[in-house]
Simulated scan of single mutants.
Amino acid sequence: MTHLPQFSIALLHPRHWFTWAGIGLLWLLVQLPYPVIYRLGCGLGRLAMRFMTRRARIARRNLELCFPHMSEQEREALVVKNFESVGMGLMETGMAWFWSDKRMNRWMEVTGTGMEPVHSLQAQNTGVLLIGIHFLTLEIGARMFGMQAPGIGVYRPNDNPVIDWLQTRGRMRSNKSMIDRKDLKGMIRALKSGEVIWYAPDHDYGPGASVFVPFFAVDDAATTSGTWTLARLSSAAIVPFVPRRKANGKGYELMMLNPECSPPLDDAKTTAAWMNDIVEKCILLAPEQYMWLHRRFKTRPEGVPSRY
Rank of each mutant, 00 (worst) to 15 (best):
I238G: 04
M95D: 02
E84K: 08
R232T: 14
L130K: 04
R156D: 06
P243I: 04
A222T: 01
K298Y: 06
V30Y: 03
D220Q: 15
A231D: 03
G249S: 06
P201F: 09
D266E: 15
E109G: 09
N105V: 04
S306R: 15
F145T: 04
V110W: 08
R245A: 06
A268Y: 00
W20T: 07
L285Q: 15
M275D: 02
D101T: 12
I58K: 09
M52V: 00
E280Y: 05
V239R: 03
I131Y: 01
W292F: 11
I140Q: 02
A21W: 10
G208S: 12
R171K: 10
G114V: 04
Q31D: 02
W97V: 08
C282H: 04
K176G: 01
T299M: 07
P5Y: 01
A21S: 14
L293S: 10
R244L: 13
K246I: 06
F67N: 00
R296P: 05
S193D: 14
A96Y: 09
V211D: 05
R54V: 13
G146N: 05
L284C: 11
W107G: 02
M187G: 01
W20E: 05
V79A: 10
R156P: 03
A237L: 10
C261G: 00
A96T: 08
Q73C: 10
T126D: 06
W274S: 07
M1C: 01
L32E: 07
A236S: 14
R75S: 03
L11G: 02
Y199M: 01
E302K: 15
P161K: 00
D101R: 14
V36L: 14
D183S: 12
T137C: 06
M255D: 12
P263G: 10
L11A: 00
P243G: 07
M147Y: 02
H13C: 03
V154E: 05
Q31C: 12
T126W: 05
M52I: 00
G146P: 08
I278N: 10
R173H: 09
K250V: 02
